[in-house]
Design a protein around this nucleic acid. Sequence first.
DNA 1: CTCAAAATCACCCGAAAGTATGACCCGGAT
DNA 2: ATCCGGGTCATACTTTCGGGTGATTTTGAG
Lengths: 152, 152
Amino acid sequence: MGFFTRHKHVILYGFALAGLLFLLKWLEWKFVVLDRAIELYSGAIALVFTGLGIWLALKLARPKYKTVVVEKEVYMKPGTIDQKALARLGLSARELEVLQAMAEGLSNQEIAARLFVSLNTIKTHSANIFDKLDVRRRTQAVDKAKKLNIIL
Amino acid sequence: MGFFTRHKHVILYGFALAGLLFLLKWLEWKFVVLDRAIELYSGAIALVFTGLGIWLALKLARPKYKTVVVEKEVYMKPGTIDQKALARLGLSARELEVLQAMAEGLSNQEIAARLFVSLNTIKTHSANIFDKLDVRRRTQAVDKAKKLNIIL
DNA sequence: CTCAAAATCACCCGAAAGTATGACCCGGAT
DNA sequence: ATCCGGGTCATACTTTCGGGTGATTTTGAG
């Protein structure tokens, strides 16, 4: 990353400031004849640079993400997935997708096609799933997953 | 929440602006004698109000929130086998046994051991089951069987 | 930036599953 | 007696699955 890229905001700010000062100089000629000119463009400067400051801050300040945990009581009806069990097993979103496809009776090849990834990727995912579910076959995985209500 | 509390930033900003203008007026008396006074406090205004803008933005910009975690409770479901569907499919008693074992995630070898028959026999049965259920894999067979309620 | 987890893909290899075909036995229906 | 469906088993072959290992890339958190 070059110097300009890194400091582009600062540089742009500098140019903007310079431009504004030139503008002020020009305004000096035009309005110097006016009696209350000083208040006029003092306010103008204030306004413009306040906006500039706001823009700068919003542009430069990295958005500070605040992580909030919301606990929600949900009563489970038959045919609802058990989020707790899911969290406990530590299955990733992708792994869950694969598991669901498995439950539909799809072969690894078919799952790969559906998710637009390679067969090997599905193999890796399924191996991880078996590991996390503590089983050795896809049929067992599906059976266990259904019993734990982590899939429909 | 009162009016002041809600708009305190705006109000403070207003007062700050007013104060700055008074300051400028005062500066006008003091520095009007100087030749380049205009550039001097133009810059000063610019700087101060830029800072003010930044402060404002940082103060007002609400943080972006993230992540939600939900909790759940469980409950289970009943199930009844559909004798009609069973009859319609023409599955034999033996085939049903095999199908059920499949649903439990057993391997052909394990099923063979449980039913005291050879592995090849299970293969024959499963092939017949797949044929009758019109599927190609044990996972599909189990899925379909569950959906048709011919197994638990 | 750095570190770790997640996701992606590859290659090898053995085990399991599935396909195809044929054979034997047995009990009930024709 | 003959035929047939269900159950049993076998051989041979192909395909899919699963284990083990390693690599690259992306992404989020610290």
